[in-house]
């Protein structure tokens, strides 16, 4: 399956969240995730209150809870990094692992659960953002937020050529796999060093092809009058209503966080 088919797949649906201007959406999502990150350990009131606007957003985006749920699981393997906390934090013993003899404390389990909940809510926000906004709009928002032109232009080009180079890489991988026939059940290929060399040569070859492509792209840009200054279309006016809606969402988050601490 081509890489392009996977991306921006849900960004062109229609919902209030999809229609919201990216220049309001991007900073609002960032600010809300920042508010989530300030949640104190085992502050379940705050997490519950902060989850309500997220849930409302998921419903309003009409992406379907399954889609959001499925995409949020991608980030979960990282939870391995927090699990040891369960056993090292001193506190009331809840259970002991058989064989290893490690004891899990109540405080430790609460700490791990807090991290998981914070992370999960943040990822859900990010999933709603990218599933409801075409990448081009996100990049335009970054430009509007005064991210340096050179950086935004580089990210735009990366997005543009990721498909081209990525599919070139897929072709090379397919070619390698076709050449590397092996009998089922038998160990194929040489040593790890040999395999790394094959992949390294593929990467080197891809580098040379990419660099030569960038030279052709540059020549094509020059032919169209490029003078080294990336140009962007003028931004359409940003409706105050959109800004107000985004600001209200962030204020709601701050209020939830503050309310939980009273």
């Amino acid at each position: 399956m081509s890489i392009a088919a996977h991306l921006d797949r849900y960004a062109h649906r229609n919902s209030p969240v999809h229609r919201l201007d990216a220049r309001a959406k991007v900073p609002a999502v960032f600010a809300y995730v920042l508010v989530i990150s300030t949640t104190r350990e085992a502050d379940w009131t705050a997490i519950g209150l902060l989850a309500l606007p997220v849930l409302a957003l998921v419903i309003a985006s009409r992406l379907g809870p399954w889609l959001v749920l499925r995409r949020t699981f991608l980030a979960l393997p990282f939870v391995m990094a927090a699990v040891p906390l369960m056993f090292t934090r001193p506190g009331e013993t809840v259970f002991t692992l058989p064989l290893l003899g490690w004891t899990a404390s109540d405080e430790g389990i609460q700490a791990v659960a807090t991290i998981l909940a914070r992370s999960w809510l943040s990822v859900a926000m990010a999933v709603v953002l990218v599933s409801s906004t075409p990448m081009v709009q996100i990049l335009r928002a970054l430009r509007w937020l005064r991210v340096p032109r050179l950086l935004v232009a580089t990210i735009s080009f990366t997005y543009r050529y990721f498909f081209v180079i990525g599919e070139e890489a897929q072709r090379m991988i397919r070619a390698r796999d076709s050449r590397s026939a092996r009998l089922p059940g038998l160990h194929g290929g040489g040593s790890v060093r040999w395999r790394a060399r094959v992949v390294g040569h593929m990467a080197g070859s891809l580098f040379v092809r990419s660099l030569e492509r960038s030279e052709r792209v540059h020549a094509a840009m020059q032919a169209r009058g490029y003078r080294g200054e990336p140009r962007f279309l003028d931004d359409p006016p940003l409706p105050a209503l959109h800004l107000a809606a985004a600001a209200a969402f962030v204020v709601l988050g701050v209020a939830m966080q503050a309310g939980a601490r009273l």
């Binding site: 232009a153 080009f157 990721f162 081209v164 180079i165 990467a203 990419s210 660099l211 960038s214």
Partner: peptide, 24 residues
């Protein structure tokens, strides 16, 4: 100078793609 954007953009795409190339 003016080569910056096409060079860096395509190179970032290259790094992205090179990360797809893995070996057991």
């Amino acid at each position: 100078d003016e080569r910056a954007v096409p060079l860096m953009g395509v190179m970032a795409a290259f790094i992205f793609a090179a990360q797809m190339m893995n070996f057991p």
